[in-house]
């Protein structure tokens, strides 16, 4: 830093992000600034653009407008500082491989092209599996795992990415209550270590208990900030329309 008075750059700084499919906006002029060490939930109705927001932040889909900065720089130069957990349904779990191998894939970004994963990578993967309570399933074919176990394998894979900013797309989908708690505990641990974690979430009931911050999204950004400030009757009504009354009760 040339200027000592400036604070370290923000993990995620999104300005005027617009994403459209065939001129139909999916995200419209969304601003999102997330301070370091935040556990942020993205909530909103179906089709609100929650996954799209994550994918656009990672440069996975083209944007119509907007600027995205990760720790002050474009994503392409910050790949190693960012971890990503895609939706569980987005991959083919009949793929011929086992849990440990999937977790090892989290190190591929650090290895780069052509370098092969070795003993170090497998040990890191094994440690991560242990952290998510899946060590005994390391050699298990991935189609033989339950939904919650698959989700934990994905989480372990994110852990070995050893990132400073994480994007997780519905890590609680298809997971039982006990697994949900153990996952959120891990996410909170990451946050205590100063990592920033951004999670697409569905359950408004658990928002306050699980997360520090929340972004309410419905194509437009409705609100962003500490969960308490965001979850007002008015904001929920703007995000969910007529359904808000029933969601709030």
């Amino acid at each position: 830093m040339t200027n000592p008075s400036s604070s370290s750059p923000l993990p995620l700084d999104v300005t005027d992000l617009t994403v459209a499919y065939h001129e139909k906006p999916v995200l419209w002029d969304v601003d999102c600034v997330v301070p370091e060490g935040t556990l942020l939930a993205i909530v909103g109705p179906n089709g609100a653009g929650k996954s799209t927001f994550i994918k656009a932040s990672l440069g996975l889909i083209p944007t119509a407008a907007g600027r995205i900065k990760i720790f002050g720089k474009p994503y392409a130069s910050q790949r190693k500082r960012v971890g990503y957990v895609p939706q569980r349904e987005s991959v083919d779990w009949d793929f011929p491989t086992h849990a440990l191998d999937v977790v090892t894939m989290g190190r591929y970004g650090h290895l780069g092209w052509f370098m092969r994963p070795g003993k170090t990578e497998r040990e890191m993967a094994m440690d991560a599996l242990e952290k998510v309570g899946m060590a005994e399933f390391a050699q298990r074919q991935i189609s033989q795992l339950s939904g919650g176990q698959q989700q934990r394998v994905f989480l372990a894979r994110a852990l070995v990415q050893d990132a400073d900013l994480y994007f997780m797309d519905e890590p609680f989908s298809g997971v039982d209550a006990a697994t949900e708690r153990s996952i959120i505990q891990l996410l909170q641990e990451l946050r205590f270590k100063g990592k920033t974690v951004i999670v697409v979430h569905h359950d408004l009931q658990t928002l306050k208990e699980y997360f520090d911050w929340c972004m309410l999204l419905n194509v437009r950004r409705i609100a962003l900030g500490p969960v308490d400030e965001v979850l007002t009757k008015e904001n929920l009504h703007r995000a969910y329309g007529g359904r808000a009354a029933f969601l709030r009760s």
């Binding site: 996975l60 790949r79 960012v82 999937v102 894939m105």
Partner: peptide, 22 residues
Amino acid sequence: LGFFKELKLSTFDAGLAASLGF
């Protein structure tokens, strides 16, 4: 042999592969 890891990752999880720059 050269692209084993890259082919494996992009076949199993194209999303992660793209986010890692592959």
